[in-house]
């Protein structure tokens, strides 16, 4: 079993919030992705299936439906650039071009050195503070190109 004990304990408590345990699946996938390398491995899907008493294929069906779950390993840092309407109107294309240049990653790709994965995402609810990126699960809003450069420079 790849599921560490602390997560198993956490999920045992989690399922008490719901009349049916399966409702804990999506929050549990989040916790696995957060703690276990930034993606959902096939092994984890099997463990979650066992924990929730469903088939692995059902876990896969859910994990693959939701854009936030990654089924392949990401680089060390993940940059998501919103390219929906409000961000586009305030220079998201420039942000994306600059992010490509600074990271050496292509859109939906990982840089050769494995340091950066670059993704384009839909509206993140930061429309009146656009443009924005999400860097390693944190929003950066009212983003300038200088700030972007500083943020990327500060990544390990």
């Amino acid at each position: 079993m790849a599921l560490p004990k602390n997560l198993k304990d956490e999920f045992t408590e989690l399922v008490t919030h719901y009349p049916e345990s399966r409702a804990g699946l999506i929050p549990a996938l989040h916790r696995c992705q957060e703690d276990l390398g930034g993606w959902i491995t096939p092994e984890i899907m099997e463990d979650l299936a066992e924990f929730f008493g469903i088939e692995p294929v059902e876990v896969y069906g859910v994990a693959s439906f939701y854009p936030m779950f990654r089924l392949t390993p990401p680089g060390e840092n993940v940059i998501k650039v919103c390219h929906n309407i409000s961000c586009d109107l305030r220079g998201a294309s420039d942000v994306l071009e600059k992010a490509k240049e600074l990271t050496g990653a292509d859109v939906h790709g990982t840089s050769a050195d494995g340091k950066f994965t670059l993704e384009v995402v839909e509206c993140q609810g930061c429309c009146s503070t656009a443009p924005m990126i999400d860097l390693n699960d944190q929003f950066h809003e009212n983003l300038t190109l200088d700030e972007l450069e500083r943020l990327i420079g500060g990544c390990k």
């Binding site: 919030h17 399966r22 999506i26 859910v62 439906f65 939701y66």
Partner: peptide, 29 residues
């Protein structure tokens, strides 16, 4: 009365009220 938080995972369709309920139940939205 209990109040619980629940996290979605990036699918717009889960804002539609019945898609949201399916998602809350741990299924595709």
């Amino acid at each position: 009365c209990e109040i619980h938080m629940h996290k979605g995972a990036g699918a717009y369709i889960c804002g539609e009220e019945t898609g949201m309920m399916e998602s809350l139940e741990g299924k595709r939205g």
